[in-house]
Amino acid sequence: MSHLQLELKPDSTALVQLASAVERFAEEAGLPLPLAMQLNLVLDELVTNTIDYGFAGREDGYIRIELHGEAGRLRVDLQDNGVPFDPTAVPPPDLESDLEQRRVGGLGLHFVRELMERVEYCHEAGENRLRLERALA
């Protein structure tokens, strides 16, 4: 069983801390490199969204992340005290239009859905709570 807990402040150091924490977890859990990079991408996209839109200059913002690997499954729990935001309610991006028509943006949450098998959201006790799951291989 592998386990890692991390609390990030919503600032420019968050992504660097996140990347090194994912690296530590990946090593401990024996994740293959491609999966470690996918996990980093998924968390990067979610954390970046929360930092960009969640706190509007507030000083008391936090993002808590828990990574849990057991019995071939990876579980990720994210909690933040930013404005309520349900990433599972965001419509999928446009992946079909040609270059001129293609809209800029919206890909981050698409990666989360593509790379994780389950994504569940709730808002409880003043927190956005997101649980992600997938196979550990």
Binding site: N40, E45, T48, L99, R102, V104, G105, G108, F111
Partner: peptide
């Protein structure tokens, strides 16, 4: 070594400008 959607956004804007 690594690209997220924030980086892809820049590449898309660049490709549109070139076109």
């Amino acid at each position: 070594d690594y690209v997220s959607s924030a980086g892809l956004r820049v590449l898309l804007i660049a490709a549109k400008q070139v076109k």
